[in-house]
Simulated assay, not measured.
Amino acid sequence: MTLVKFNNGLKNTSANPFFSDVFDSLINDSFLSDKLIARVPAVNIAETESEFHIELAVPGLKKEDFKINIDKNVLSVAAEKKAENVEEGKKFSKREYSYNSFVRSFTLPESADQSKIEADYADGILKLTVAKREEAKFQSREIAVK
């Protein structure tokens, strides 16, 4: 049987405690972690008989912040937001408001009707509806047995 010692969340203070505190603050600092994590919104894509649904989770933006373009068969959704809230008389010890932007691109299938794309933004969700071409819609029929 092997015994394994766990620290159980306690810091090792036998070494220099200042070093471990600085190291922990660097690792856990939101400034550093924000720079390392790519910020792209989560997306859900669904298909029905007559259309495709694309939903992006983008809270905190306005309708005016979005740019939706289509080039050939690539649908691009971009957003740009710059926070410039400067208040006189305040001295900030940490400031996390920043400039945020993203671009998500989706390759549309041949069955998509590029002339019938609609966008709606409500409650932090951008919903894109892409209609299908008439000939690409699911057609069901009963086949008779001879």
Rank of each mutant, 00 (worst) to 15 (best):
N69S: 11
A131H: 07
S76W: 03
A112C: 03
A46W: 04
V103Y: 05
F23H: 08
E47G: 04
K63S: 10
N16I: 03
V86H: 09
L56D: 01
D71S: 11
S93R: 05
S93W: 06
L126S: 00
V77K: 00
T107P: 01
L75F: 00
K35T: 14
A38R: 14
K63T: 08
R133V: 07
K91V: 12
E134K: 14
K94E: 06
K67A: 09
S33Q: 15
S14N: 07
S50G: 07
I37D: 08
V103T: 15
K72C: 02
L108R: 04
I125L: 04
S50H: 09
T129M: 00
A131Y: 09
A131N: 11
V4L: 05
F138W: 10
S14T: 10
K5A: 01
T13C: 04
T107S: 12
K62C: 02
N73I: 01
E84N: 12
K81Y: 05
F138K: 14
K94M: 04
A38N: 12
V77M: 01
K94G: 03
F138H: 11
N16S: 13
E80S: 10
D21R: 13
A144N: 07
K72Y: 04
K82H: 13
A83D: 08
K82F: 09
L32A: 12
I37Y: 13
N28G: 13
S33H: 06
A122K: 14
D65C: 00
L10S: 05
T129C: 02
S98E: 11
D29H: 14
P41K: 00
S93H: 06
F66H: 03
L61W: 07
N16D: 14
G60K: 02
S50A: 13
D34F: 07
F106I: 00
D65G: 01
N73D: 06
V58P: 00
V40C: 06
V77I: 15
T2F: 06
K146L: 13
T48N: 11
N100A: 13
I45S: 01
F92E: 09
F23C: 07
K11T: 04
A15D: 12
T48D: 10
S101M: 06
G124M: 03
F66G: 01
Q139M: 07
F138E: 15
K137A: 06
F6L: 09
E110K: 11
A15L: 14
E55I: 02
G89Y: 03
E49R: 11
